[in-house]
Nucleic acid binder design. Structure first.
Length: 467
DNA sequence: AAACCCGTCAACCGCTACGCA
DNA sequence: TTGCGTAGCGGTTGACGGGTT
């Protein structure tokens, strides 16, 4: 009780101090909202503000950032508060330069998942996405200047090897096609769907389930965290809502690290399907390009990073579906580039060092970027005018399904409790069940071991424009 | 000493997804 | 089912400090 009184007294003192600062000292801008005057401060945080915010979090917990302004004298927007807390004030933050181990981890993670800073941060206790992003961008510049490859040779080698393995395994594993009547009439034959879903699944699986040779990241994680029952994601990272959501669908990750048995086998990183703009079933549906895409997809080489014609961060090296590309990357609006196009990688990777370039010959896509910025712009304009997606979801599907369907891109092959689905053929059953009954519930009924929020939607083909 | 350049870091902005009424 | 508020992510910008000219 006394402690609470002390704390609120402290807060009062801080707030008084804050109030005593002049407008200029606070650096605030003045406006009005619904007749009531309000001030919103921007720019660097002062120690007083920090203290107020820290005190707020202490008393009210994280989240509800917009109420900070109501409960304290802080003149910061909720976003700003959240950011300040996340990046500077939360406990267990590791400040200072990255250790060589951390650097290595970043490189490997970037090779696998691309510019997914938050996901990387979740795997690096005490580090923030901002830090990692800044580090990486600095690194890119430095390496560009020095003419160095972005990824060290060992990672590049590993990547191309994995790519080959992935290809072989994929061919072997999914050569047995399952025809599915229910899907006819769609632009895709079921076998294509099967291939694509399988490819995507396997790409994901290859990238994250860390079997055999692909243990570098996971072993590193184990080296770093394994000895202390580290809880992944980063427990200190506030409001890991998205991660938590994903854990519902992919709960294996948390378990797997602490589970001695699975440490080296089932490190399943935070799923990628959130926010991924998949091309797996949502790639531009220009039929000419589709067939090309299907022919040339062969592996999972995606996305290059284009920065004024010079290389920057290459895409994830292998299967990981790096699809939410930075603004300077090849996008799905390149209609010649059915998949985020490896030839783009070739053309933009000034040093020819992108690991992805190693597999780019599989594709005969041509990128408009090859022929200049103007043409690229024209090309993009044309692309935008074309319908890009169609297929799922069915117009009568519930919005719940639609929402799910649009958020999903990969087939992570995960069931509840982090279990790994034995194979992707179950997808076909689910798809046909859905199409047969036109009811998403029927899918879970058909596959009762799966929760509504977990499996089928996470594996459903994604996206697509309504007919 | 001043101007300029460059790297780093913190913060902002725009967009998207989610949750809830 | 829909609309709105909130949270989070990733890209970008701007401030600042140190080095160089």
């Amino acid at each position: 009780m006394n402690q609470m009184q002390n704390e609120s007294r402290k807060t009062m003192i801080l707030e008084k101090r804050m109030a005593s600062l002049s407008i200029k000292e606070k650096g605030i801008s003045v406006g009005s909202l619904s007749g009531e005057n309000w001030v919103l401060k921007k720019g660097p945080w002062t120690s007083v503000e920090d203290a107020i915010l820290a005190d707020f979090v202490k008393r009210h917990g994280e989240g509800n950032w917009n109420s900070v302004r109501k409960h304290t004298s802080l003149s910061r927007c909720g976003k700003s508060c959240r950011l300040r807390w996340t990046n500077h004030l939360r406990p267990n933050l590791k400040k200072g330069t990255f250790t060589p181990q951390e650097e290595q981890l970043i490189i490997e993670l970037h090779a696998k998942i691309g510019n997914k800073w938050a996901r990387m941060a979740a795997l690096m206790p005490g580090r923030t996405d901002n830090e990692i992003k800044n580090y990486w961008n600095t690194r890119i510049k430095r390496h560009q200047r020095a003419g160095l490859p972005l990824y060290p040779p060992n990672i590049r080698y590993q990547a191309s090897e994995e790519n080959q393995q992935y290809k072989n395994a994929s061919e072997h594993m999914y050569s047995d096609k399952h025809p599915n009547d229910g899907f006819r009439g769609s632009i895709f034959e079921m076998s294509d769907i099967h291939d694509i879903v399988a490819d995507n699944f396997y790409a994901y699986h290859r990238a994250f389930d860390a079997p055999s040779s692909d243990v570098q990241v996971s072993s590193m994680l184990c080296r770093q965290f394994g000895s202390q029952n580290y809880i992944l994601g980063n427990p200190a990272l506030p409001n890991m809502k998205r991660l938590r959501d994903s854990e519902k669908q992919c709960s294996g990750f948390t378990d797997s690290i602490s589970d001695e048995h699975s440490k080296s086998k089932h490190i399943v990183l935070e799923p990628l399907w959130k926010k991924q703009k998949t091309f797996i079933l949502g790639y531009p549906c220009d039929p000419d390009h589709q067939s090309k895409a299907l022919q040339s997809s062969g592996g999972a080489n995606h996305g290059g990073h284009v920065l004024n014609g010079t290389s920057s961060a290459p895409s994830p090296i292998l299967g990981a579906s790096e699809l939410e590309l930075p603004s300077f990357q090849c996008t799905e609006t390149d209609t010649n580039c059915c998949f985020p196009c490896s030839s783009t990688l070739m053309s933009v990777d000034a040093y020819g060092e992108s690991p992805s370039a190693a597999v780019s010959s599989q594709s005969d896509c041509t990128s408009p970027r090859k022929s200049g910025l103007l043409e690229a712009l024209v090309h993009e304009a044309q692309a935008i005018s074309k319908p890009k997606f169609f297929g799922f979801p069915h117009p009568n599907a519930s919005s719940r399904f639609k929402n799910k369907a649009t958020e999903i891109s990969s087939c992570p092959n995960l069931g509840e409790n982090g279990s790994v689905w034995p194979d992707c053929s179950i997808l076909n059953d689910s798809l046909s069940t859905f199409l047969e009954h036109n009811d998403y519930k029927s899918v879970t009924a058909a596959t009762p071991s799966v929760g509504l929020d977990s499996y089928p939607w996470t594996c459903m083909p994604h996206t697509c424009r309504m007919p």
